[in-house]
């Protein structure tokens, strides 16, 4: 097993099984159950909450524990850029472009100001 895990092709097997199949299976189930499942059922409410919390966990992880170049920015700068970008998004009528651009500009401005 560890031989397979170390092989160059192992990530591609991971992508097909754990990435592609684990994602597309929900789309296929959606086609199969359309018309039979109420979109506002309690079970689906719980399922959506679990999915949302999981993706939110990914967001926090990417900001608090990034890899590569972003690691070079201090934690407070990463948090401030992301948080203020989100605040700008909320204040300016929930426009994605506003939130994303605000965070990006703040990060680069902070980066240059600190002379990193």
């Amino acid at each position: 097993m560890s031989g397979a895990v170390d092989a160059w092709w192992w990530p591609y097997v991971m992508i097909v099984v754990a990435g592609w199949l684990a994602t597309d299976v929900w789309r296929w189930i959606g086609v199969l159950v359309a018309g039979r499942l109420r979109e506002d059922s309690e079970f689906l409410g719980w399922v959506k909450a679990v999915a949302t919390a999981l993706v939110a966990g990914v967001i926090a992880r990417l900001i608090l524990f990034p890899s590569g170049a972003l690691e070079g920015a201090p934690l407070w700068l990463r948090l401030a850029a992301a948080f203020l970008g989100f605040v700008a998004f909320l204040v300016m009528g929930q426009r994605l472009i506003v939130g994303v651009l605000t965070a990006e500009v703040l990060l680069i401005a902070g980066w240059l100001a600190l002379g990193l």
Binding site: T52, V55, A56, V58, I59, L62, I63, P66, S67, G68, A69, L70, G72, A73, R78, A81, A82, G85, F86, F89, L90, Q94, L96, G99, V100, A103, E104, L107, I108, W111, L112, L116
Partner: peptide, 22 residues
Amino acid sequence: PTPVTAALFLLTPVYFLCSLWG
């Protein structure tokens, strides 16, 4: 340049933060 690479990395979590809330 490094700050641009870092900003590209930050784009994904901020994009998710906003679109998930929306």
